[in-house]
Amino acid sequence: MSVLSFRLKGPLTGRIDASPLLPHRLAELSLAEIAGLPLRLGRGHVAVGDVFDLSGSPGDTVELEGDGRLDFVGAGLAGGTIRVAGPVGHRAGTGMSGGSLLVEGSAGLAAGASMRGGELIVRGDAGSELGGALPGERAGMTGGRILVHGACGDRAGARMRRGLIAVGGDAGAYAALHMTAGSLVIGGRPGVFTGHGMRNGTILFRGEIDPLPGFADCGLNRLPFLSLLDNHLSGLNEAPPTCRGLTGQVRRWLGDRGFGGRGEILACL
């Protein structure tokens, strides 16, 4: 397996659009060609070689040194692996359709937004719009998996249609806003207005909440599906530990009835 490494030469002077640094786009190029590729920096451009020291050989894995000003890391990833040592900026992994993006630090806004497939792992925290919809889009995440060890911001899983998001820490407000399908597992505490406008799909966490008035209390249940989900999570490399063991008796709410929704909020007791 060949690994291509990008090490930052120094502090960044502005925000960089790192979306061209995808394994499958670089695999056919030589190191010199890669060093000559333009990257957007603020309103202008710089060459890859002006920002990064390159080492290794192009193949199916890219390793990046992280920085909070590297945006669009892994955006549009279709295959292969990107590992980031440190944090990333906004929109990491947006529109991913395959492959794996591992961020060892935290991620900024809209990580995994409009994702269609593949796996995004964030070991730190994630910002708002995690796995959400890009501005103006009717659908958010439509496939794939997002595993966040830390907390996430507001509107995680907004307009989600398919796939799995597991957040180890707390979630912000409006989690699963206007969700149409898919699963959102929260290992910590959910924020306010969780599930607002949801039409279908599942939100799962631990401990009782006082849901929005649009949710109808369906009482205590034992759902065999929860064990299947827990088994599934146990088979994943990087599932947040706090998201495990959400089985047994749950209180179930159905909604958001204000939107004719039949989604479910499941609070594990």
Binding site: R43, L134, P135, G136, E137
Partner: peptide, 15 residues
Amino acid sequence: RLLLPEEHREHASGP
């Protein structure tokens, strides 16, 4: 323009 953000994402040009 607001209704079709995808059009503007796909067809953008810098200064």
